[in-house]
């Protein structure tokens, strides 16, 4: 059962992102929102790691949170708005929020 993992903490202050990346199944998805979008900071190791994720894994980032932080998502990341967030939550079998 494919899982959508939702992260909202900065990858520079704790290990949620690195742990999550190791636990992604082949059909899982990862949605970055809040400070988790800092993982897309250009030139960061986190951004590189995301870029190298296998194609089967859906990578998403919330548009509003990117905009607020003046970040632009690389091509590998699909940018979604809030309705897109809801649609994703329904598309996957379950959602795992990393609180």
């Amino acid at each position: 059962m494919a899982t959508l993992h939702v992260l909202s903490h900065s990858p520079f202050t704790d290990s949620r992102l690195s742990s999550c990346l190791r636990l992604l199944g082949p059909a899982d998805g990862l949605l970055l929102c809040g400070d988790a979008v800092y993982a897309l900071q250009p030139g960061s190791a986190q951004c590189q790691a995301l870029d190298l994720m296998p194609d089967g894994i859906g990578l998403f980032a919330l548009d509003e949170d990117l905009g607020a932080r003046a970040l632009t998502a690389p091509a590998r990341i699909q940018v979604v708005d809030y309705p897109g967030f809801v649609e994703l939550s329904c598309r996957f079998d379950k959602v795992n929020s990393w609180l």
Binding site: M1, N96, L99
Partner: peptide, 18 residues
């Protein structure tokens, strides 16, 4: 190990991380 954890998460209907 990590591979077994991926299978574990897959098996459950719902997951929450605290």
């Amino acid at each position: 190990d990590d591979a077994a954890l991926i299978a574990l998460i897959d098996r459950y209907d719902q997951v929450i991380t605290l």
